[in-house]
Design a protein around this nucleic acid. Structure first.
Lengths: 147, 147
DNA sequence: GTATCTAGTGTATAAAATGCACCATAGTGT
DNA sequence: ACACTATGGTGCATTTTATACACTAGATAC
């Protein structure tokens, strides 16, 4: 996807700001490093904080709902090409249980089920956004318009 | 871990800034949504951008090296409690192949192998930082000092 | 000689993801 | 009446991925 120089610069700047933000957060946490809360604790906490995301499709589901807004089961299946309905079903249940996604049943007929991010899920999506944008640029999927 | 009001506020502010940054990036990409680069394309690109992270331990390895700095094989194994040496070995190879991690052999004896983030890996780590901090706060692993 | 450190491999098993068939309910087409 | 579509999934066999645990080789210390 080609975007204008102006927009590219905006995205680049936003990404750089986030890197700086990340650096600051890191340095604050570093300053608390002692015998009780050392590297071990922090790696542990990070692994734990990420445990919900650290299996296939969870982050992808989050990103999809963040990008596409609320969707129904089969719509998600089409968007997430390659996921089996079995896995999608399982993962949506997990996302729902962990408070990232709301499962909303609209009674029909036909009954429709809508999945949408909770506030927590939306926050996570926004925090993930800059990394996704960075990766897209890194992989040349998003490029500056050449004129 | 308890941190001062001041530091808590700094971290909170940084996280909020990143959310806002994420919102802006999203709105820029949204504005390019058309028949060629619609939701389908963007979900695809996001899934693809994240494919390197979307299996267990990859993000944890990244976070560990980001938090702890460069480490040797067995040091990582201790930090990432629960990973098998087999899996760690495989994942480090993948991380190395995908340019996130450098494998540096210091010849001995004994030969020591150091793993460290590449610039790309460090950038990814920094971009991931705010989300990890947000999750830590969300899970009450990092709290404001009660005085 | 035995134990320890290094960075991993080999292999059997367990867990997770996939592919594909299938379910019930309802509506539409011919 | 009969087939076909769409809804949101479940069941089950197969494949892929991760784990547990034993084990390797080269060098040092005891």
């Amino acid at each position: 996807m080609e975007i204008t120089h102006e927009d590219f610069k905006k995205v680049e700047t936003a990404i750089n700001d986030v890197k700086e933000e990340g650096r600051q957060i890191r340095s604050i946490f570093d300053s608390y490093s002692d015998e009780n809360f050392g590297i071990d604790w922090e790696v542990d906490a990070a692994v734990d904080a990420f445990s919900i995301f650290s299996s296939r499709w969870t982050i992808e589901i989050l990103a999809t709902l963040y990008i596409a807004g609320e969707r129904r089961f089969n719509e998600m299946r089409k968007l997430l090409r390659g996921i089996s309905s079995r896995t999608l079903s399982d993962k949506l249940t997990k996302c729902s249980e962990s408070g990232l996604v709301d499962r909303v049943v609209e009674d029909g007929p036909p009954i429709r089920v809508i999945y949408r991010l909770t506030d927590h899920g939306r926050d996570a999506g926004r925090l993930l956004g800059p990394l996704v944008a960075y990766m897209k640029i890194h992989q040349d999927r998003v490029v500056r318009h050449s004129q």
